[in-house]
């Protein structure tokens, strides 16, 4: 028995933990921008960590349930309203057939994750249910949800989880300073030392162009390039390179003005130089940045990046311990 979508909010898509393995053909891994939040939501309702849930941006959907289920909302602070009554975030609660789930206004963060016991079981595409809208792949008919869609829900044996909650210390969110750790590299040496310092010194702001493909930032100083004869095939702008692969999290700066961090639905390659890459541990945080939020980039080396990765694994381990 499915969930009926009365209203999709602004942009709500089905996401799981993605489809690795096709980036060399231009099909990105995709999946939840905030992986830890989706995993937490799934664990709360007794699902496997990688079950498909909903990723709602800035505003929640209106959903009508046609069977009993357990639900959890994590990630952004987007308070769920069950038949109009507010329910806590990061906490499992029961819904009955005929109940309506809506949402209050966004309090903080950018993306909320809604897990339903049994998971959403739309057809798999290349091994994943994640919506890759650019390629019309996965999710609900390859697109974001629309009014009238019906979401099939899988079978589950889990019950009695209502009230289970993620401990506050494990609810990871960007701090007020919005710091993102970056490992310099790739084409870092294309810009002058002054510009290298400026990138880390300046305070940047999230631009309006901030989506699953990438986040654009504004407000820092324009970068100066080290002079060179542009190589054959690269293009004439000093920010051009011979089209190459783009790492997930890589920071490209077209014309040296506005950095763009590529995210889960990244374009797999192109002709803009990149100055470094946001470390894997901080990718989740990007998805919770709102437009106009201040952001600082913090320089780290590989050792620090691996240390941060271990810290994130520790949070994941604690989540599993607390919720299973």
């Amino acid at each position: 028995m499915p969930i009926n979508v009365t209203s999709p909010g602004i942009l709500t898509t089905i996401q799981d933990l993605g489809r690795p393995g096709y980036y060399h053909l231009g099909i990105p891994m995709g999946g939840a921008m905030d992986r830890l939040a989706l995993i937490a939501a799934n664990l709360l309702v007794g699902n496997p960590e990688g079950a498909a849930g909903l990723e709602a941006v800035f505003m929640g959907p209106d959903l009508e349930f046609t069977e009993d289920a357990t639900v959890a909302v994590t990630g952004a602070h987007l308070p769920p309203l069950l038949n109009g009554v507010e329910q806590p975030c990061w906490t499992a609660f029961d819904v009955r057939s005929g109940d309506r789930l809506g949402f209050d206004f966004l309090k903080s963060g950018a993306r909320a994750y809604i897990a339903v016991s049994g998971g959403i079981v739309t057809p798999l595409a290349l091994g994943s249910r994640s919506t890759y809208a650019i390629g019309a792949l996965g999710g609900y008919e390859g697109r974001a949800l629309a009014p009238g869609d019906t979401l099939p829900i899988g079978k589950t044996k889990a019950s009695g989880r209502a009230g289970l909650s993620v401990p506050r210390a494990l609810r990871r969110a960007p701090g007020p300073a919005g710091e993102l750790r970056v490992l310099p590299g790739l084409y870092w040496n294309r810009i002058t030392e002054t510009s290298q310092r400026a990138f880390f010194e300046d305070t940047w702001k999230v631009a309006n162009e901030a989506d699953r493909m990438g986040y654009r930032f504004q407000g820092g100083r324009t970068m100066e390039f080290v002079e060179r004869q542009q190589p054959f095939g690269a293009g004439s702008d000093p920010s051009n390179i011979t089209d190459a692969c783009y790492p997930y999290g890589s920071v490209q700066v077209p014309s040296g003005t506005e950095p763009i961090i590529l995210h889960r639905d990244a374009v797999s390659g192109g002709g803009y130089f990149m100055i470094g890459t946001v470390i894997s541990a901080d990718m989740d945080l990007i998805g919770q940045l709102q437009p106009n939020m201040e952001t600082r980039f913090v320089e780290v080396d590989m050792e620090a990046a691996l240390g941060a990765r271990a810290d994130r694994h520790a949070i994941l381990g604690s989540l599993r311990e607390a919720l299973t």
């Binding site: 790739l186 190589p231 095939g233 690269a234 990149m274």
Partner: peptide, 19 residues
């Protein structure tokens, strides 16, 4: 050779395009 964060190794064979 250069690392793209802690999950990518990026290798530039040449700056210019050629077969």
């Amino acid at each position: 050779y250069t690392f793209g964060g802690d999950e990518h190794l990026f290798v530039e064979v040449d700056e210019a395009m050629s077969l």
